[in-house]
Design a binder for these strands. Structure first.
Ligand SMILES: NC(=O)c1ccc[n+]([C@@H]2O[C@H](COP(=O)([O-])OP(=O)(O)OC[C@H]3O[C@@H](n4cnc5c(N)ncnc54)[C@H](O)[C@@H]3O)[C@@H](O)[C@H]2O)c1
Ligand SMILES: NC(=O)c1ccc[n+]([C@@H]2O[C@H](COP(=O)([O-])OP(=O)(O)OC[C@H]3O[C@@H](n4cnc5c(N)ncnc54)[C@H](O)[C@@H]3O)[C@@H](O)[C@H]2O)c1
Lengths: 234, 234
DNA sequence: CGACGCATGTGCGCGAGTTCACAAAGCGCT
DNA sequence: AGCGCTTTGTGAACTCGCGCACATGCGTCG
């Protein structure tokens, strides 16, 4: 077994890309490709090759000069760094439209995030079974989190109830929250929150569309904008 | 009516925040609050006040010194800049779990993105009615896009079919794509793609969790990482 | 066994974005 | 009308990430 993982801090921008690399590497592995160059990986990920190398260098020197990276080993290293060596059960709050779609989504458990529980306030939803999980009353949230040692919660309730849901999760001991409600959650320091807001995504697309149509009318006065964060105007 | 909108290019980072401001402002407006300071808006959005001011300054000088910003007017200006003055109908490809949840989600049309159509390859899905929209055969995609002049497409098909779906959308004339499949889409230049990948989000959370547990074992050697992009370790 | 070629790992300059700090500018009160 | 209080708008410093370019090191082939 190789030297212990380098314990330096990894830039957030890099952390956000590691899952992408991981997913591509997994595909390569399935395709029986056991070696890949930074160039190759960069092409598939849609980023710069130097960026790939720099990103991977934060994990350690796991490549072979003149050759490339061993796919399997790289997968192992990235998984280790992301904490994917063991499962992270998640608890979903809100068994509505979205909550049920999420619970039923196989891509969760496949990637090491089994649904450890799903709760709702609406008694009509109790005992509905989604992909093996049974919807439980909201009161049981705390107990579920404790008994299954869950540290990741998913908020899939209406906006008005989102802060309450987050408060409950935090009180129960959850330290990371994935929020689908279009509101900014306020949480204690030390709790990590990420937000997925479809409306925001669409509005960003809308901005580009609007820009395109304006540019068209003006005879392409402006250059095409580059994108940032996720996605790209490729 | 004030001077024509400043036509400078708005930084992508700012564009990504404008929808957040917009949503907060809408809430304030509902609460009969008709004026807000950069400080107040920043607090609600979870960002720095100076950043708010700089972001808003890209739209023009729409604040009043010593007072703040008029909520209604600011809403109008942001909406205009994002191209939200008129509706952008979207077409959803894939009427499975996710596609149906999306189509049935009221938050879409509420924010100016009515479902202009939803298509699938599976005949079993045809004519299923979701929130007023009827699922149509994939063949009709092009015709729907054309007849309704749709420029935004949503990809909600399995990964293996995502690139095909994207190609179809592009060929039909769509210029912006919101992709839910965990694959990198390759599209011609000039097409804007944004990706929403739940697994990526969860894996980023996992990283922070893993980091937390390591830090705990080591007696807090490392400082808590700041988050980037979306979400926050607040 | 030595030389060649190739891809990694990284030092460094550059640019974008963030934040500080302050001058400019309305508003209300005297 | 003037004065002081408040908050905007923005110049400027700073931080951070990106990408070039190249030295380094490994594998291979002669
Ligand atoms: N459906 C989508 O495609 C979609 C897309 C983007 C965002 N969202 C957001 O996700 C959230 C949920 O959307 P949805 O379509 O599933 O709504 P929904 O109304 O179908 O489901 C909400 C569920 O939450 C439950 N609930 C309400 N208050 C609760 C509380 N305090 N604690 C626990 N459960 C509670 C309700 O009983 C209901 O079952 C909303 O904030 C919505 O804006 C949904
Ligand atoms: N369900 C979720 O919560 C969820 C969450 C995150 C990501 N995703 C992603 O969203 C995508 C869809 O997920 P899902 O759960 O809805 O899957 P699903 O299997 O329920 O639905 C997929 C649908 O796409 C249709 N389809 C297949 N090939 C097609 C093609 N070439 N053209 C048009 N339609 C086609 C199928 O007939 C099916 O109806 C997947 O890529 C998945 O990874 C889903």
């Amino acid at each position: 077994m190789p030297p212990p993982p380098a314990r330096r801090r990894i830039p957030d921008a890099t952390v956000a890309r590691l899952p992408i690399y991981l997913q591509i590497l997994a595909e390569q592995s399935t395709a029986a490709i056991d070696n890949i160059s930074s160039e190759g990986l960069a092409g598939l990920a849609g980023v710069n090759a130097a960026k790939v190398r720099k990103d991977l260098s934060y994990l350690g020197s796991y490549g072979t000069r003149g050759v490339g990276y061993d796919v399997g080993y790289l997968i192992y290293q990235i998984r280790r760094e992301l904490g994917l060596n063991y499962d992270w059960p998640v608890i979903i709050v809100g068994a509505g439209n979205l909550g049920q779609a999420l619970a039923g989504y196989g891509g969760f458990i496949d990637r090491g995030f089994p649904v450890g529980g799903i709760v709702d306030v609406d008694p009509a939803k109790f005992d509905v079974v989604v992909a093996g999980a049974r919807v439980r009353p909201l009161d049981e949230l705390s107990q579920i989190v404790e008994s299954k040692d869950i540290s990741i919660g998913v908020v899939a309730v209406p906006s008005s109830a989102a802060q309450d849901a987050a408060d409950l999760l935090v009180k129960a001991g959850v330290t990371s929250i994935l929020n689908f409600a279009p509101v900014i959650l306020s949480v204690p320091v030390g709790i990590t929150v990420r937000k997925v807001d479809l409306a925001v995504e669409l509005q960003i697309l809308s901005y580009h569309e609007q820009r395109r149509s304006v540019a068209q009318q003006n005879g392409q006065l402006q250059g095409a904008p580059a994108d940032r964060g996720r996605g790209a105007t490729a």
